[in-house]
Design a binder for these strands. Structure first.
Lengths: 349, 349
DNA sequence: ATGAAAGCGCTAACAA
DNA sequence: TTGTTAGCGCTTTCAT
């Protein structure tokens, strides 16, 4: 049925070891026989069996990409970055979308190991460090190059790449304060997610720096979806003393917040300020113009893949790379201009 | 290093064939030995090697998903649909993003075959049927279950699933006509793409049905990106007799069109109508409210995967399923209400 | 320069 | 019920 090197050997009249040599450009083989073999291989329509090769080489040229939500435009950009460098270097990538489901994440991790991927890039759906308990040390049990994307290693045993989420939360909130908003709420996504909790810490730290008391009733978390943003915004508005601004866990949430505000007829940015996080492509559209914190998504995907492939190929040591990128505030139309005279000096963080 | 069934056999004191039986729930094995084997397997932290298994079984439980643009929100929804059913059935999916690059598509197709995937779901970046010449018969040379997503088979040898693009183009254009727009342009994406050319045909057929002459200067194509939509809209506006409405090849293009219109200060929908295609999630956002043609993306992804897995598992015959879904017009805020009295009857298509 | 043969980790037919 | 053995298709020593 499918043609193998043995078939080639038969018609090219040589041993199949020779075929292997010829096809893999190994030295020590007569140029003519090599050509003859290559010719018959293409005549027979030979397609190397990567599975068999993988078995003997213990290398599959395959990596796994484990992410929580491919539908959030943040991740497709990452995926494209990862893919571009992977395919450039002859690797192929398994897409593993967990829908923020811890169980599904584990199932995927197991499958990837069984399929003998050469390495894994993962955005854990839960914060590895703050989550105490042994359950979440699972990444340490994987004996494979791993790069953690937007998360941290519990042991320092894995490279990781992320934006400085704390700083991002800080500058987002700072911007809101300086624009003169008075009661700034936080609408986060998954409370257990690493990036979310860092952003929240940044938010708190900004408030504290400016001498503003932290009001726990203004801090909410649920999901990284816009429905969640809508719902939480709605309930925040029902507070006796409702907020006049909100910093959200990501742009998608902010979109839901904006929708709610529009429905309630609350004017943005005049009476209400909104800052998101990620700077997904749609945030920049003229109709949206969301003020947000930018992450260079495609670049981050590329970097993650480069780091991983370097580790796989032994070009760099495992787990040493800590790449923290600087977040950038993108001021658009959902926050007021900084025309508010503010005397309180920002304390250093 | 890694533990194999031989290691298990050694400590469980049996042959490794027995181990294989025990671990795979094969009949004809003593319940106690099975348990003993299972126990030692987990004690040793055994992880089956799917590569070795794949080699002997000639089945990898892996499928390939080949799409042109993971960044277009249309595709992540598809991917999620595909993934959800795949992972449910124990399959894993290779994400192959081609960026509309025919060469990259071929490279991926080759890689997928070499990696012995069990089947492929592909949105060809070029129209297989209209593209004449032998180059584009490549899918027929692949001896694997394939389902073509939003495209057609040249031979009828592959199942395919798509929306009725022609019909979609027709109802989009019809809607614009009935809303009273007079000069309706078409801004497409890749001219060589199947869905694009079908949508264009639908557009022409609607105009013809309503007795409107087709003006080739109003028909433009470039890329499925919003930059392309912006640029083409801009040049269309420079025409001596510019259009007052446009039907676009997809929503992303429409977003670019809207941006251009806004910049030029042209009022939508009062003075200009826009209809997109796909109904990506962002089109429904309150700030956008794009009138468009809906495709049930997630469902389509699910269906594609189900069809493929059925073929793989011999539950249905290869290449017989032709699934054509009905498009739906979603009227939002980028087109006028149908308050225009129109006497010309729609001829049947 | 080429061939013979072992072995990667597993499944499955055949024996016992 | 269990063991022996032959591959799956390939790479890679070790001989020749």
């Amino acid at each position: 049925m499918t043609v193998t090197i043995k078939d080639i050997a038969r018609v090219a009249n040589c041993s199949y070891a020779t075929v292997s040599r010829a096809l893999n450009n190994k030295p020590g083989i007569n140029a003519q026989t090599r050509q003859r073999i290559i010719d018959t291989a293409s005549q027979l329509g030979y397609q190397p069996n990567a599975i068999a090769r993988g078995l003997v080489m213990q290398r599959t040229h395959t990596i796994g990409l484990v992410i929580p939500d491919i539908v959030n435009p943040f991740f497709p950009e990452i995926a494209r970055g990862v893919e571009d460098v992977a395919s450039d270097q002859g690797y192929t990538v398994f897409l593993c979308n967990t829908n923020w489901d811890q169980t599904k994440e584990n199932v995927y991790l197991k499958a990837l190991q069984e399929k003998r991927v050469d390495g894994i890039i993962i955005t854990p759906s839960i914060d590895l460090v703050s989550a105490n308990g042994t359950n979440y040390a699972y990444l340490n049990e994987i004996n494979l190059p791993i790069v953690i994307f937007s998360g941290q290693s519990t042991t320092g045993g894995h490279s990781h790449i992320e934006i400085d989420n704390h700083r991002g939360g800080f500058i987002a909130t700072k911007h809101l304060i300086e624009a003169g908003y008075k009661r700034i709420a936080f609408i986060g996504g998954r409370e257990s997610s690493h990036s979310n909790s860092e952003r929240l810490k940044g938010y708190k730290s900004a408030l504290t720096s400016y001498g503003i008391a932290i009001d726990e009733t203004l801090i909410t978390n649920h999901d990284f979806y816009s429905e969640s943003g809508y719902a939480l915004m709605e309930s925040l508005l029902k507070l006796p003393n409702p907020p006049d601004a909100v910093f959200t866990g990501n742009d998608i949430i902010a979109l839901g917040v904006l929708e709610c505000l529009q429905k309630k007829g609350i004017r943005v940015p005049e009476d209400f300020g909104v800052v998101g996080f990620d700077n997904i492509i749609f945030s920049g559209y003229p109709q949206i113009q969301l003020t947000t914190i930018s992450q260079p998504q495609y670049l981050m995907g590329k970097l993650a893949a480069e780091i991983l492939l370097n580790e796989i190929n032994g070009l760099s040591t495992k787990g040493v790379r800590k790449t923290i990128l600087e977040p950038e505030l993108i001021i658009r139309k959902t926050t007021r201009k900084l025309n508010f005279p503010y005397n309180i000096r920002e304390k250093s963080r």
